[in-house]
Amino acid sequence: MAGYFAIFLVLLTLASGLVWLLDALVLAPKRQQKLALAQSAAGGGSLPEEAGAELLKEPQLVETAKSIFPVIALITIFRSFIYEPFQIPSGSMMPTLLVGDFILVEKFSYDVKDPVWRKTLYSNNKPQRGDVAVFKYPEQPTVDYIKRVIGVPGDRIIYRNKQLFIEKACTDAQQTDCGKLEMIELNLKNEGEYYQEQYPQRRYTEKLGDVEHDILQTPARREHTEFFFKQRGTAIDEFVVPEGHYFVLGDNRDNSRDGRFWGFVPEDNMVGKAVFIWMSFEFNTDPNSWLPGWVPTGVRFERLGSIR
């Protein structure tokens, strides 16, 4: 099911639309009848203009509903089927996405779903390896998560000693370059640009198919394989993606609670593909500052643009 805000928008759209329809079909004709009766009762004299306007005056509820319905309906349609804005709340997708980034998620990139029950209305493209995807968190479906798609149905994924391996599934669409375990090459860009706690992180460039992106690793942090998702018939650091599911990882590999720890994302949970950063705020991280941490201290204009 959808989140509470999406349900609220749909209910508000329905309520304001029904009030408008009720007024058009029932209340407005009754006001016209009252005006006609008042004019007849006035006999030969004309009804004062102010009195006529008072009889035709719309109730406050109707006036409000008619003013908000077009706007609310447009917003509901836009965020349900076209684009939805999201704010990045954590550093699990660094360096691709930073805390304070505001992004647009393209809803029609994947299957188009109704905004409340999330049943598929139109089957569109499927998530691809390398996509930055927003989805309903499998362990709490009212919460939205954002991670990178690493494995599609049938893929075999190994994440061992901070190295990613993928054995792509052979399908009708992919007959070549499949069926063999491939190590995903990492090219070091720098070290020390970012830190996890007091530990310096290494920034690598990784390539998944045609998608080239950067990831972060923290060499000083060990992998907590004891908390990895345990899939029957596989090693502790191995994951075979079931039909109708996807395997996702955060780009900040040692600071992300992702598919390694809770398993796979059902296709029905997919919300859309993150495609654009439309605003990015900096926040004060000095604990001794008088300024609250949630107050923006600057705008990172250089971050605005497409997401890869």
Rank of each mutant, 00 (worst) to 15 (best):
D214V: 07
D214T: 10
D214P: 11
I215T: 13
I215D: 01
I215Y: 04
L216V: 04
L216W: 07
Q217F: 12
Q217I: 15
Q217C: 07
Q217R: 08
P219H: 05
P219C: 08
P219F: 10
P219K: 12
P219E: 09
A220K: 15
R221F: 12
R221P: 02
R221E: 10
R222V: 13
R222K: 15
E223V: 09
E223S: 11
E223N: 15
E223A: 12
E223K: 04
H224E: 09
H224W: 05
H224M: 12
T225E: 08
E226Y: 10
E226K: 14
F227G: 06
F227M: 09
F227Q: 13
F228K: 01
F228P: 00
F229L: 02
F229Y: 15
K230G: 03
Q231T: 01
R232C: 00
R232S: 14
R232Q: 14
G233E: 08
T234V: 03
A235F: 09
A235K: 11
A235S: 13
I236L: 11
I236A: 06
D237R: 02
D237A: 08
E238P: 01
F239C: 07
F239K: 05
V241E: 03
V241G: 07
V241Y: 03
P242H: 13
P242F: 13
P242Y: 08
E243Q: 15
E243S: 14
G244L: 03
G244T: 07
H245M: 15
H245K: 15
Y246W: 04
Y246D: 05
Y246C: 04
F247N: 02
F247V: 01
F247S: 02
F247Y: 11
F247M: 01
V248F: 01
L249Q: 06
L249R: 00
L249G: 02
L249P: 00
L249S: 03
L249C: 05
L249M: 14
G250V: 02
G250H: 06
G250S: 10
D251V: 12
D251Y: 04
D251F: 05
D251K: 12
D251T: 14
N252H: 12
N252P: 10
R253T: 08
D254W: 03
D254Q: 13
D254K: 12
N255S: 13
R257H: 06
R257D: 06
D258G: 09
D258T: 07
D258R: 06
D258N: 06
G259A: 06
R260W: 02
F261G: 10
F261I: 10
F261Q: 06
W262K: 00
W262D: 00
G263C: 06
F264I: 14
V265A: 04
V265W: 01
V265M: 02
P266N: 08
D268S: 15
D268M: 07
D268I: 11
N269A: 14
M270K: 03
G272W: 02
G272R: 04
K273G: 03
A274G: 07
A274M: 08
A274I: 11
A274W: 06
V275K: 07
V275E: 05
I277F: 14
I277H: 09
I277L: 08
I277W: 08
I277K: 13
W278E: 06
W278M: 09
W278L: 07
M279I: 13
M279D: 11
S280F: 12
S280D: 11
S280N: 14
S280I: 10
F281R: 10
F281Y: 09
F281T: 03
E282A: 13
F283R: 10
F283H: 10
F283Y: 15
F283Q: 08
N284Y: 06
N284R: 06
T285P: 01
D286W: 08
